[in-house]
Structures are given as structure tokens and as C-alpha cells.
Design a protein around this nucleic acid. Sequence first.
DNA 1: GATTGACTCTCCCCTTAGGGGAGGCCTTAT
DNA 2: ATAAGGCCTCCCCTAAGGGGAGAGTCAATC
Lengths: 276, 276
Amino acid sequence: MYTIGEFSRITNITVKALRVYHDKGLLTPSFIDESTNYRYYANREIEFAHVISTLKAMQFSLVEIKDVLNNINDDADLMSVLADKQAKIIQDISSLNNVSSAIDFILTKEKEAKKIMTNTNEVTLKQLPNIEVITQTWQGQYSDTGKAIGKLYRTAGRHVTGTVFNLYFDSEYKEIATLESCLPVKSIVSNKLRGKDSSIVFKKLPGGHYYTLLHVGPYEDIGVSYAKIFQHIKACGHTPTTPSREVYIKGPGMLFKGNPAKYITEIQIPFSDLLP
Amino acid sequence: MYTIGEFSRITNITVKALRVYHDKGLLTPSFIDESTNYRYYANREIEFAHVISTLKAMQFSLVEIKDVLNNINDDADLMSVLADKQAKIIQDISSLNNVSSAIDFILTKEKEAKKIMTNTNEVTLKQLPNIEVITQTWQGQYSDTGKAIGKLYRTAGRHVTGTVFNLYFDSEYKEIATLESCLPVKSIVSNKLRGKDSSIVFKKLPGGHYYTLLHVGPYEDIGVSYAKIFQHIKACGHTPTTPSREVYIKGPGMLFKGNPAKYITEIQIPFSDLLP
DNA sequence: GATTGACTCTCCCCTTAGGGGAGGCCTTAT
DNA sequence: ATAAGGCCTCCCCTAAGGGGAGAGTCAATC
């Protein structure tokens, strides 16, 4: 016979926990002094204590453990209980994996943005690849882009392959611009669109040569960068055409508005060789 | 301005939860009617609510979320918080994976036992392979095997490769037998033994030809099976030698004593061709 | 025999993130 | 004006104990 303290040391279960197990009828000491209420445990209980610890380590709740202890005699039953528990654990693992991926996505994006920040921000001539996107065309101000993007993201789900951008069809500044928000996706998404909200369209955007310039800072200042890139294009003897693109490499994030001074936008402008 | 009910529908957060967020200072409605205490939310709060939901989905506690909301302005800080959280999630995943493996181990063993049960239980002549084990030699009764095995299991950890068995060095029945408990392991375990408790020894057991018989039922009845196998060996003109083995394919499990009528023990007896 | 220190008892409060419900006040539609 | 539904606060409940208070108990020492 052991006192509760001795038994606690033997089984590596705290005294508090042992009292709880007693209260809940999981592990009743084999003798209780009726005058003092002292609990005394026998050797036999050590084995039970071990079973409880093991089941607890397997994520069983105390109620479940009690159930197992009282109602399971047959091996087959025990195995089915264990199999159920394992299924639940595997499900938990999968959902945690999803969370981890989601965080990964954010971290990766941030790292890319950091890398880009350290690059020069000079006008560059780039060959853009063909790209598959879902798009939504609308009219309004740049700041409404968020609304369109939300819908696109929900449609694409986990098939997003790149960073969102807008196409601008106006060659000069307009208060209410016509634009098309684009989200690069796997081509499989085109199947998901059948019969759905027809304002969202799957497209293959052709690539080609574009003049590009990174604009770092709040969107309100983007005029400066536009001036810079137009000047450069003209100096090269080319003529800007449409649609131009604004790639929102880093903007108000999924979580926070962030710091506008660190927003990164890539302006991409197509051109023709002809003089205007 | 939205009432709490409208805001709840917009954000998919229950009214109860919104009130808790208010109490804890996570999300304060932008206007509170001082005479009625009615909460009114503005559009601005929708964004915050979304941030809170997102962080909750990422396993942040309310305290952590409040901390993030109040104290994090810099992107770099946010990323480090996310990275920390991800590390913790990955750790959780790994520990769940361990639990799942442990359950797997039990389920697999049980399935094997079931398969064996359906086989015949006749005396068979088998070629046993060489095998690497850790062993502990001791004297006592069969029923003390559990004690030795516990130590072996703890030593081997996840490098266990097979089912535990005892070697018997006495050729006749003795109250206090000399026996050696063996646990098949990967040879890598031999490294872990250096400088440790020297009663545990790493060995390569040679295989060879053995007469074998499955004993199904409680250990007390094993005498019957021994009689059967000895008789068979004699009938074949061979002489039993030592050490004989008892493989505890299924016994009192890691969790429960189980049903002794379903215990499975394989008796393995070596022999010489000479007559005694 | 008495004291003392270590042990044990019960009881109460606290933790997460709200859920359920009671009782009472408020708003809005008919 | 009335009724329905919305909103308020307050209280209890969850799982698995941890922390601590106040009181009683055990065993050894003086």
C-alpha cells in the first residue's frame, strides 16, 4: 500500500491528477481510511495508472479513457477504438499541415518581396511569358481592386500560381478607369467556372516584350514612376501601347494593411516600334 | 454602422464571440450607446474582424492576437511571429505523427496475430533466420518477463524490429528457471549500449532449424503444447536441445491484460539428429 | 508525551474561448 | 399600443488539472 505521494512518484502522475482520476472514477484507490479520507494505493493500481498514462498520451480524454476502461473487454473493440482515434489524429495532422502551408505562403511571399527590394529599380526591358489567369473586368478606382481580388482568390482556392495584377486599358489618366483584375492560376481552374458567376473569366494572356519598373512606396506616388518609365520608353524610340499592367508584388497583406512605404508595384508597359 | 447581429452575419463571427473580443479589448465597436450599452460597428471593423479570424485559423490564442494587433507594426516582426507559430505547429504535427505511429504499431501487431490465429496449429519444422537482439538474462518465473521486457523496450526505442521472446536454458521444468529475454532490434542499437547498464547485451543470434508449435490460450496451459511438440520430435527420431524459445506473439498488451484465451505463444525447439 | 515537519485532506479560484440560458431593456413593425 | 425579435448583463458550464488556503494526520525525534 502506498500513500498518494508515493504512488505519484511511482507512476509519474501528479497528486492533483490522481485525485481528479479518483473523483472521476477512473482510478479508485484500493483502500480509503474512512476517518481520515487518506487514499492508499496497491500494486494492482500501478498497472491501471500506466494504462491511463498511455491512453492520455494517445490523445484520449478522461471521459474516453473511463469508457475504454469500463466497457471494453474485447480486443476487437479496443482496436476499433484505437483506429477511430488514429483517424481523428490523422485528420488533425492534415489540418495543421494546411495551416503550416498557409503560413509558408505568406512567409515565402514576404521573402520574395525582400529580395526584390534589394534589386535596383531601374527601367528594364523584359520578356514576359504566356500566363493563365482568371480575370474580372470592372470600372472604378485602383483602391477598389481589393474587392475584385477577394472573389478571384476564393474562386481559385489553392490553385493560385502567382501574384495578382491589373490590366489598364486607358492610355491616359482617368478618374474612373476601366481595368481587369487578373490572378494567375493553374489551368484546371477553368473547369470550376462552368455555370458559375460569369463575370469571372478564364484566359490565356500572351506574353511579349514589356518595359518594366518597380515602384516602391505608396500607390499615391505611382505617378512619378509612370513618368520615369514613359520617358525612358520615348528615349528608346518606342511608343507605349495598352493594356499596361500593374503587378501588386506587395501591398496591403492578407493580415494587415502593412506599411505603405514598403508597398511594391511593378509597372509593365507594352510598346510598338512605330513612332506615334 | 451595424448592430452586433448584423456585424455577426457580415463577419461570420458569433455574437457571443464578438462580445468576448470586446471584453478582451481585441475588437472594440466604434460606437457604444451609453444609455443602452448597445454596440455599433463600422465598416472599418470588418477588416479587423477578418484579421482576427485569420489569426485564429492559424492557431493563435486571443491573447497572442491582441498582442499582434497592438504591438506589431513592422512586417519583419509579423513574419517572425508567423515563423515562430509555424515552428510550433510543425512540432505539434510531429508529436501527433508519433502518436499515430504508436497506434499503428499496436494495430499492425493485432492484425498479424489475427492472421496467425487462422493458421493451423500443428508442429512445423522451420528454418529461423539469424537475428540481432538485445537481451537480458535473469532467473525467475515466466510471469516476471514483463519487467525485463519493459527495460529492453525503453532501451531500443523506435528501433524495435520484431516480437519479444525468451530463451530457456533448462531442459526440464524448474520453478525458478534461467532465461534470457530477447527483443529483436536494428543493429544500430548496439551503439546506444556503450557505457550503459551492462545487464543489457546486444547479440547476433544464429538461426537454424527448429521445431515450432503455436500455443493458443493462457500460459498455464502451455504444458500441453510442450508435450505435443516433444512427442512429435521424438517421433521424428530427433532429440530436443537447448536453448528453446518462447515467442510471445500476443500476450498481455501494452494497454490491457487482454483475454488470456487469445494469447498466442510460439514454442521453438532446436534439436540434434543424435539419439539421446 | 509533546513537538515538529512533512504529508494529506477538502474547498475554492483560475486557466481557453466561448455556448446556453435567464431576466430585463430596446427597437421596429404592424 | 402591442408584440416580436434584438440586445444587454450576469451566471453557470466546459477539460484537465495547477495554485494555494486552512485544517487535519503521520512518523520521527526530543
